[in-house]
Simulated assay, not measured.
Amino acid sequence: MLSLLAATAAVSEAIQWAELGLRPYLFEIGGFQLRYYSLAYLFGILLGYWHLSRMIKSPGSPMAQRHADDLFFYCTLGVILGGRLGYAAFYKPDLLTSIELFKLWGGGMSFHGGVIGVLVAITWVARRGNLNWLRVCDYIAVNVPLAYMLGRIANFINGELYGRPVESDVAWAMVFPGGGDVARHPSQLYQAGLEGLMLGVVLIALFWLTRARYRPGLLVGLFTVGMGVGRFVNEFFREPDAHLAYVVAETGLSRGQWLSLPMIAVGLAVMIYAFTRKPIGTTKAPAAQTA
C-alpha cells in the first residue's frame, strides 16, 4: 500500500509531457504533415554535408568535393534503406515479408542498420574514386553524432522511445502519453546528450584542434566505441520494444545492448590499429648521399 502511494506521489510530481505543448509535426495542410522526425533527418544530413565540405578544405583531405557530393547522395540512401532494413532484420523480422516494410512514415529505423548502410555507401564511393576507405570513414564519422542528436530530439518531441519507469526521485522524470500513468526517464534526451552532443563535440574538437585526422581509423574507431558505449549505457534507461521485452527477461540485456557489444569491440580494434601505425605524412625522406 505504501509503495502504491509513493508511486502515485511520484507521478503527480513528474513532468507531464502532454503539458509541454509538443506535437509531432511543424504544420499540417490537408492530410499532409511536415513531421519533425523527417526534418531531423533532412537537417542532420545537410549539416553533415556542410561540415564535411569544410573539412575537406583543410590540409590532408583524402577526397575532393565531387567525392563529398557522391557521399551525400549514397550515404543518404544508406541511412534510409539500411536503417529500415536493419530495423526489420534486428527488431521485427515479420516486416521483411510485408508491404509495411515500405511505409517509412510509420516509424521504425535502426541505428545499427543505418551504420551498415552508410558503410556500404562509403565502400561504393571509395572504390569508384580510388580513395582510402578508412580515412573516408574518419571524415564521415565526425559528422554523424550531431545528426543523431537531432533524431533523438525528434523522438522526444514525438513522445516516443521513452525510458523505463524511474526507481527513485528524479526531478526530470516524465509521464508520456503512450507509457501509461508512470513516471519515466526521458531517455531520448539522454541519448541526444551522450551519443549525440557530447560525442560530436569530442570528435569535432579532435579533428580541428589535433592531428587525429592523420591517424587513419582513429576518429571512426572512437566514434564506434563512443556510440557503442553510449547506447549500451542508455539502454538501461530506455524502455525495450514491447515485442522484444523477452530478450531483457531472458538475457538481462536488451537487443540494442547485444548489438552494441560488437560495435565496441570493432571500434577498439580499429583504434589500436590507428595507434600502432605511423601517422600519414611522417615518413622521413631518405638522407642525401654524399660523394
Rank of each mutant, 00 (worst) to 15 (best):
T8Q: 07
A9V: 14
A9R: 14
A14E: 04
I15G: 12
P24Q: 03
L26K: 00
F27E: 05
Q33R: 01
S38L: 07
A40R: 03
W50Y: 06
H51L: 15
L52Q: 02
P59F: 03
S61L: 05
Q65V: 15
D70N: 07
V79S: 14
I80D: 08
R84S: 10
G86Y: 06
L104I: 07
G106T: 15
G108K: 06
H112G: 13
H112F: 02
G117K: 11
V118L: 07
V125Y: 00
R127V: 15
R135C: 08
Y139V: 03
N143G: 14
M149I: 04
R152Q: 05
E160I: 14
G163H: 02
E167R: 13
S168T: 01
D169P: 08
M174F: 05
F176K: 12
G180I: 01
G180L: 07
R184A: 11
E195F: 05
G200Y: 01
V201N: 07
T210A: 11
R211E: 14
Y214E: 15
G228P: 09
G228A: 06
H243A: 12
A245K: 04
V248T: 06
S254G: 15
W258S: 09
L268F: 08
V270L: 04
V270F: 09
F275T: 15
G281I: 08
T282E: 05
